[in-house]
Design a protein around this nucleic acid. Structure first.
Ligand SMILES: NC(=O)c1ccc[n+]([C@@H]2O[C@H](COP(=O)([O-])OP(=O)(O)OC[C@H]3O[C@@H](n4cnc5c(N)ncnc54)[C@H](O)[C@@H]3O)[C@@H](O)[C@H]2O)c1
Ligand SMILES: NC(=O)c1ccc[n+]([C@@H]2O[C@H](COP(=O)([O-])OP(=O)(O)OC[C@H]3O[C@@H](n4cnc5c(N)ncnc54)[C@H](O)[C@@H]3O)[C@@H](O)[C@H]2O)c1
Lengths: 205, 205
DNA sequence: CAGGCACTGTTATTTTTTTCACAACACCTA
DNA sequence: TAGGTGTTGTGAAAAAAATAACAGTGCCTG
């Protein structure tokens, strides 16, 4: 089990590696990756140690190979299936953004209460009515959900998702969700992020 | 100077306090706030110590008062002025979401290269053409910028923002920006967040 | 008013995370 | 082959963050 912080950084590293790969770069030194990721070279080496990856002194790391090794650690044996609940502005933006970025993260269903939305394919993904939620989650084996719906509906939906078998929730609604220990919850509150940036912009970091 | 993590939590606390205030709750114990914020009671007390706030044993914390004290620490003397660059799906969603949430964070300008967008008021905020960027930033005294534009334009815009005097950037474009030490940069990559959630959803946290 | 209760503020401790420092190693050059 | 250069992997040290522990305090009860 890798710590939260390291997972986050590994994800970043992989993504940096992939963009480097597109530019035909085949190997990198720790200090190069470090400067891209805005961390120290030692941090890079230590993180790679935790996934048991070895480069070679003088040669550094093989970009493609390292990216694959990170994938072996972060990605499951099978792709994770993802649902998006609430196909408003934010939901649609997310779906169109994510769908063609990572093959091991598949958005396989979206949900909405609005009858002008469900029953159709939106941004390349089928949108279902809210009352089909449990059925589809189980049928598809969805384990991860993204919440982009109004705050007042979020808790009830989270409860239903959990009962249906979802074990990870990425929540964009500005509301403090309560979930059981079984479920991994990550909140993405824009306001908090902006407040933080404003604070350090002012205080001069 | 407060550490990054503490600022993040304080922002969360304040927001929880405010929603409690709406429900007419006038005081709270550390363990109550802790359970809402998903942290330990000791953590709460320690965080409040760093901003020099004192509750009273038996009574706990005065909700309104504490919220104000956090504000005194996090918010500047004057509101921070914010610009949003790139008024696509995500930009519009963010502007409409934020604009009526925090009085000390004012979105005073948005920018776009699309001539069907600039020159108009979008989501309650004036949208300017890209070439007016420096002028407006300086004129308004904007210090914080949110980047919601295509990746390939992000670095160039970031450079211009920095030169114009912006000291904090909240970046949504999936690209590793390089900025000088003067600028506080926060990246919000959806993919990384989702990968993290998927990982811990699988590994069972 | 005395005593018990429940919570805070703060110090001490533990745990986690990051950085440092350096031996070991590959590779290049002559 | 020998020596120099530059990078890795990792144990040790340092720093930061979280947790625990507890004395001190207001408050209630009888
Ligand atoms: N807009 C942003 O940038 C932003 C940022 C952070 C958080 N948020 C939050 O994300 C949420 C969505 O934002 P938005 O701008 O997309 O709003 P929106 O109103 O455009 O979209 C909300 C969607 O959710 C649907 N919905 C309502 N109740 C539902 C339910 N019970 N189950 C399923 N779907 C339901 C609505 O039909 C609508 O399509 C809000 O809670 C908002 O506060 C938004
Ligand atoms: N959509 C998401 O949920 C999401 C999530 C994370 C990151 N992102 C990233 O955020 C960015 C925006 O996403 P979107 O869905 O809003 O895309 P979009 O195409 O709807 O919006 C992009 C906007 O930026 C404008 N633009 C282009 N070049 C510009 C420039 N040089 N200066 C100013 N404006 C410019 C375009 O005119 C357009 O209005 C993209 O980089 C995307 O990868 C999106």
């Amino acid at each position: 089990m890798i710590s939260e912080k390291i997972v986050e950084r590994l994800s970043l590293y992989r993504w940096l590696l992939e963009t480097r790969l597109e530019n035909e770069v085949s190997n990198l030194f720790s200090y190069q990756l470090a400067s891209m990721a805005c961390v120290s070279p030692a941090q890079i080496r230590r993180d790679l140690m935790t996934i048991g990856y070895s480069g070679s002194p003088g040669k550094g790391y093989l970009v493609a190979d390292l990216a694959k090794s990170i994938g072996k650690e972060l990605d499951g044996a099978k792709p994770s299936k993802v649902a998006v609940v609430g196909m408003g502005n934010l939901g649609r933006a997310l779906v169109s953004f994510i769908s063609d970025r990572r093959s091991h993260l598949q958005i396989v269903a979206t949900f909405d209460t609005d009858s002008t939305k469900y029953g159709r394919v939106i941004c390349g993904c089928r949108c279902y009515a809210q009352n089909e939620l449990e059925k589809i989650i189980k049928l598809e084996g969805i384990t991860v959900a993204i919440l982009t719906l109004p705050s007042d509906a979020a808790q009830a939906v989270a409860d239903r998702l959990e009962k249906a078998g979802v074990t990870g929730i990425l929540n964009y609604a500005p509301v403090p969700l309560k979930v059981s220990k079984k479920v991994y919850l990550e909140n993405r509150d824009v306001t908090a992020a902006l407040e933080k940036v404003a604070y350090f912009a002012r205080e001069g970091d």
